[in-house]
């Protein structure tokens, strides 16, 4: 227990410096990018005077270190700045999209784990069989089929022809729960199958590895039933890389699934990030990076705790 607390303390102590360094890095990188937010904002309505005013209004004419300092001090008091493009506080924008992003990420991950892990176990247990081959074929399809292609195909089949699911467009849950859920089905399938492929390949490989390990042989020698050997002893150890990958994939889903969001017009983090970068909406990007860093740190913490749960010897 003390070991665990030590581990947790170590983790938390590093969170603040990590975020700080990251925020400096991203801030610097963003400001080094060519392109000027005020210019990008004015676009066709370009008026030198308005552009100058916008620069001054958002402090873009100040030296970059000073701009960073301003951002940091405001951020510490919970003010993440204003979005130039939307004229909305960044914190408000992010809060509004957190739920949507979470909904999509969880739904996709459920699909991915539900398909990927059992398929991987099956493929490893029946290695070389047709189940293995078909499973691998499915997994590799999930990996190599581009999301836009699968997305558009699903839309054409299930929305245009069968009319089972909406093609696009987000409906808030409180307004119409059923339509809201239906709207997430196709995008979660697109994202979920891709990740399922990755998980399946890793589960299979790790299962093969642990099925050949000493303790599994021992278990077999002891006369345990094969199913029990596979599920209890081998799978437990095989889950290590699956947990690693699952955590990263989940983190990536949480920081935004750009293409899929775009195709299904889901207003999540991905779309926000792309628009933020392309319009040089610095505060939006900065806020998003912080949020996704926190999410990545959290998911990797969970992954490490799962390691310990799966492999008690690591605790020693």
């Amino acid at each position: 227990m003390t070991r665990f607390l030590l581990f947790l303390g170590q983790r938390l102590a590093l969170v603040v410096p990590t975020l700080l360094i990251l925020s400096v890095l991203v801030f610097g990188l963003q400001h080094l990018l060519p392109g000027d937010p005020a210019l990008a904002m004015a676009g066709e309505e370009m008026d030198p005077q308005a552009v100058d005013e916008l620069r001054r209004k958002y402090g873009l004419d100040l030296p970059i270190p000073l701009q960073y300092w301003r951002w940091l001090t405001a951020a510490l008091s919970g003010d993440l700045g204003m979005s130039l493009r939307n004229d909305v506080p960044v914190a408000e924008l992010l809060m509004g999209k957190l739920g949507i992003t979470l909904q999509l990420a969880v739904a996709s991950m459920v699909i991915a784990v539900a398909i990927g892990v059992p398929l991987g176990v099956l493929a490893a247990a029946r290695r070389g069989s047709w189940a293995d081959r078909i499973g691998s074929f499915f997994a590799l399809s999930g990996i190599s089929v581009p999301h836009f292609w699968l997305g558009i195909m699903l839309v054409l089949a299930f929305s245009v022809h069968l009319n089972w699911f909406p093609a696009s467009g987000y409906v808030p849950f409180r307004e119409d729960p059923w339509r809201s859920i239906m709207g997430f089905v196709l995008p979660s399938i697109v994202l979920g199958t891709g990740i399922a492929g990755v998980l399946m390949r890793h589960t299979r490989s790790a299962m093969l590895q642990s099925l050949g390990a000493d303790y599994v042989r021992t278990a077999r020698a002891k006369g345990l039933r094969e199913k029990r050997v596979v599920l209890r002893h081998a799978l437990r150890n095989a889950l290590m890389p699956v947990v690693t990958l699952g955590a990263i994939e989940f983190g990536q889903l949480l920081s935004g699934a750009v293409l899929t969001e775009q195709i299904f017009s889901i207003p999540g983090f991905g779309k926000l990030l792309v628009d933020g970068v392309l319009y040089r909406d610095y505060a939006v990007v900065q806020g998003l990076v912080l949020v996704s860093a926190v999410l990545f740190i959290a998911t990797s913490l969970v992954a490490d705790m799962l390691y310990f749960l799966l492999n008690p010897r690591l605790r020693a």
Partner: peptide, 13 residues
């Protein structure tokens, strides 16, 4: 933590 931070940097930028 460095890898966590790397994951959070937008590829687009």
């Amino acid at each position: 933590r460095i890898t966590d931070a790397m994951l959070a940097i937008p590829f687009l930028i």
